[in-house]
Every structure is written in C-alpha cells, then in structure tokens.
Amino acid sequence: KELVSALYDYQEKSPREVTMKKGDILTLLNSTNKDWWKVEVNGRQGFVPAAYVKKL
C-alpha cells in the first residue's frame, strides 16, 4: 500500500473529508482525482486536498 505524509494541518469541512495534522502518515487509497485524494487516517476514510500531502 502507498503512504503519504501530511504537509499541513487540514480540518475537514464535510463528512466526506478527514482531518489530518502536519506530519501525519496516511494510507493513500485513491489518487485518480488531481485535486482530492482519498486516504485513511486513524481508521477513517475520506478525502484531503492533494496539494496538502506528498507521496513517501
């Protein structure tokens, strides 16, 4: 599985998104959309802005 690192804090703005803190390591589930990537963090799945994470 592919991992990404959070470059910035992000506070979810809808139920489809997830909150992350800078430095968090997230499991990348889907990166086909260039703007929003689906990740899993702390057992929750949702979307984060692609520009806020980088692949490890």
Rank of each mutant, 00 (worst) to 15 (best):
R16A: 12
P15F: 10
T19F: 04
V4W: 14
I25E: 05
L28Q: 00
V18I: 15
E2D: 11
Y10K: 01
L28A: 02
K54H: 11
D9Q: 03
K55T: 10
Q11T: 14
L28G: 00
S31H: 09
G43T: 05
L29N: 02
Y10E: 01
D24Q: 12
S31P: 06
P49T: 01
V39I: 08
V18P: 01
T27C: 11
R44F: 07
E12M: 13
L28R: 00
G23Q: 03
P15N: 11
A50F: 02
P49V: 01
Y52Q: 06
G46E: 01
A51P: 08
K34F: 08
D9E: 06
K1Y: 15
Q11E: 14
T27V: 15
F47Y: 14
Y8A: 11
S14Y: 07
L56I: 14
Q45I: 15
A6Y: 01
E12T: 09
W36K: 02
G46W: 03
K1E: 11
L26W: 02
K34Y: 08
S14V: 05
S14Q: 08
K38V: 14
K21M: 10
V4S: 05
I25F: 06
K13R: 13
E12G: 15
K21N: 09
R16H: 13
E17L: 06
K38N: 07
F47R: 03
L3V: 09
K13C: 13
W36M: 06
L7C: 13
A51D: 14
K21D: 04
T32K: 11
K13I: 07
K13A: 11
K55I: 15
E17H: 07
V41S: 11
L3E: 08
Q11F: 14
V48S: 00
V53A: 03
E12H: 09
N33F: 08
V4D: 02
R44P: 00
E17W: 03
Q11K: 13
N33R: 09
P15C: 11
K55P: 13
K55Y: 12
E17V: 05
I25K: 06
K21P: 00
A51H: 13
E2L: 13
W36N: 02
R16M: 13
V48I: 09
V4M: 07
K22P: 03
K13G: 09
K55W: 09
K38E: 15
D35M: 12
S31V: 08
V41Y: 11
K38M: 15
V53S: 00
V18T: 06
W36A: 02
T32M: 11
N42D: 12
Y10N: 01
A50M: 05
L56A: 08
D9N: 08
W37Q: 01
S14W: 06
K22N: 04
N33L: 09
V48R: 00
G43E: 06
W37P: 01
P15M: 10
D9P: 07
W37E: 01
K1L: 14
Q45G: 06
L28Y: 01
V41Q: 09
L29D: 01
N30C: 14
V39W: 00
L7V: 09
W37N: 01
D9K: 03
K54E: 15
K13N: 10
Q11P: 06
Q45L: 08
E12C: 13
N42Q: 10
K55D: 07
P15Y: 10
T19D: 04
E17S: 07
A6N: 01
V4N: 02
Y10R: 02
K54D: 11
R44W: 04
V4Q: 02
G43V: 02
P49D: 03
P49C: 04
N30G: 07
L7Q: 07
W37K: 01
K21R: 13
K13Y: 05
E40G: 05
V53R: 00
K38R: 12
S14R: 08
V53F: 04
V39E: 00
K54S: 13
T32E: 14
K22Q: 11
E12W: 06
T27M: 12
P49Q: 02
V39H: 00
L7I: 12
A6R: 00
A51W: 12
D9S: 08
V53H: 00
L28P: 00
D24N: 06
F47T: 03
A50G: 05
L56P: 06
R16D: 12
M20A: 02
T27P: 13
T32R: 10
E17C: 07
R44N: 07
K13F: 06
V53I: 11
W36R: 03
Y8P: 01
V48M: 01
G43S: 06
L56F: 10
A50I: 03
E2V: 15
I25V: 12
L26Y: 09
A51M: 11
N30S: 13
L26S: 02
K13Q: 14
L3H: 09
K1C: 15
R16C: 15
F47N: 04
R44Q: 09
K55V: 14
A51R: 14
G23A: 04
G23Y: 06
K1D: 10
W36Q: 03
N42P: 05
K34P: 14
R44E: 06
L29K: 04
L26T: 01
L29F: 03
N30T: 07
G46P: 00
S5K: 15
L29C: 07
Y8D: 07
A51V: 10
L3M: 12
L7H: 05
W37C: 04
M20P: 01
V4I: 09
D24L: 04
S5Y: 15
Y8Q: 12
W36C: 08
K1A: 13
W37R: 01
T19R: 06
T32N: 12
L7Y: 05
E2G: 10
R16T: 12
Y52S: 15
K13W: 05
Y8V: 12
N30F: 07
K21Q: 11
P15W: 11
W37G: 00
A50Q: 05
L28V: 09
P49K: 04
I25G: 02
A50H: 03
G23S: 04
N33K: 07
K22M: 10
L56V: 13
N42H: 11
L56R: 05
N30V: 09
V53W: 01
N42R: 11
N42F: 07
